[in-house]
């Protein structure tokens, strides 16, 4: 059994009368990539700040690397790497200076920082920009630099809050590729995301968060098996007919619990082509129809009745 690095029980964060995190339980094991999937405002970032020991829990238990964040903050943070949601790079310094300043916060000797800077900039493919200012770097490069910076202290856990939010698809894939390599090297990752594909690609295990609570937990495969069906039929109707068509489909597939969204009807079935043929057989005429595999987006929809991007 791998070592438990983080243990949370009834972990709660309140801001005045607002409850951002409402009594969640989870364990993080050595070497895994653990994800918090949920829409904006679900409580993911508040959870990450508590894990980063910069936001004391209001209630519940939290043990990180064997320590209590309230009492052992500096010692725990010395062993964490944090990639915050918003870049906190000093854009008036060079790439190398950013790593130097950050490494010095951890009390690392200059020689160690110099050596690691070379390795880390190679790893995030910024070696050729080492002496450039940060300001003109692209969003994707800044993100990669933030990741390199978070690794300067050789952390036991890397915490990433929405690591690819705001990046274009290509830059996102480069970041995913680097994070995947870290995972292959055995770095323990915790990340939050509201991108289902990010969670599917990177996470060994994840929790779905909604309204400050954990709605479900498991590996992406387990969650798909438990909360969704292998296939999904997406049907889009003329807005004028949408309600009527949705009603007829709901009556037809009572067992499959069709999800009726504002613009689409989703049918959760084992056999998508069969279900689509059955729909078309009744004379319903969708404008577009699509049979696809089910994703974590569907898991979230089935759990909460809402889509992640809302």
């Amino acid at each position: 059994m791998p070592e438990v690095l983080v243990r949370a029980r009834r972990l709660t964060k309140r801001f005045g009368s607002f409850t951002a995190v409402d009594g969640i339980d989870f364990d993080l094991y050595q070497g895994e990539a653990f994800g918090f999937l949920g829409p904006n405002g679900a409580g993911k970032s508040s959870t990450m700040r508590m894990l980063g020991c910069v936001s004391p829990p209001t209630d519940g238990e939290l043990t990180i690397l064997g320590g209590d964040p309230r009492r052992n903050g500096p010692a725990i943070r010395a062993r964490l790497g944090v990639v915050p949601q918003e870049d906190t790079l000093d854009v008036e310094l060079t790439v190398r200076e950013n790593l130097l300043v950050y490494g010095r916060y951890f009390g690392l000797p200059r020689a160690v920082i110099r050596e690691r800077t070379g390795q880390l900039l190679d790893f995030v493919r910024l070696a050729d920009r080492a002496d450039d200012m940060v300001e003109p770097l692209s969003g994707g490069m800044k993100r990669r630099l933030t990741i390199a910076r978070s690794l300067i202290n050789d952390p036991a856990i890397l915490i990433l809050d929405e690591p690819t939010t705001g990046l274009d698809p290509q830059a996102r894939h480069v970041v995913w590729d680097r994070l995947f390599r870290l995972k292959q090297r055995g770095v323990t990752l915790i990340l939050t995301t509201h991108y289902m594909d990010e969670a599917e690609q990177l996470c060994d295990r994840l929790v779905v968060m909604d309204h400050a609570k954990i709605a479900a937990e498991g590996s992406p495969r387990e969650l798909l098996g438990r909360y969704s069906t292998p296939e999904v039929v997406e049907l889009r109707f003329d807005p004028a007919d949408h309600e009527d068509a949705a009603k007829r489909i709901q009556d037809m597939f009572t067992g499959a619990r069709p999800e009726v969204l504002a613009d689409r009807v989703l049918l959760y079935v084992p056999d998508g082509d069969g279900a689509l043929a059955a729909v078309l057989g009744t004379g319903l005429q969708p404008i577009t129809s699509l049979v696809r595999r089910s994703t974590l987006e569907d898991v979230f929809l089935r759990l909460t009745g809402r889509s992640l991007e809302d």
């Binding site: 980063g52 910069v54 903050g73 500096p74 010692a75 943070r77 010395a78 964490l80 944090v82 915050p84 918003e86 870049d87 906190t88 790079l89 000093d90 854009v91 008036e92 950050y102 916060y105 951890f106 009390g107 202290n153």
Partner: peptide, 14 residues
């Protein structure tokens, strides 16, 4: 602006 404090708070500094 440069968020030096925000960067520093993620490190051992209190």
């Amino acid at each position: 602006w440069n968020k030096m404090y925000i960067a520093a708070r993620a490190t051992p500094l209190r």
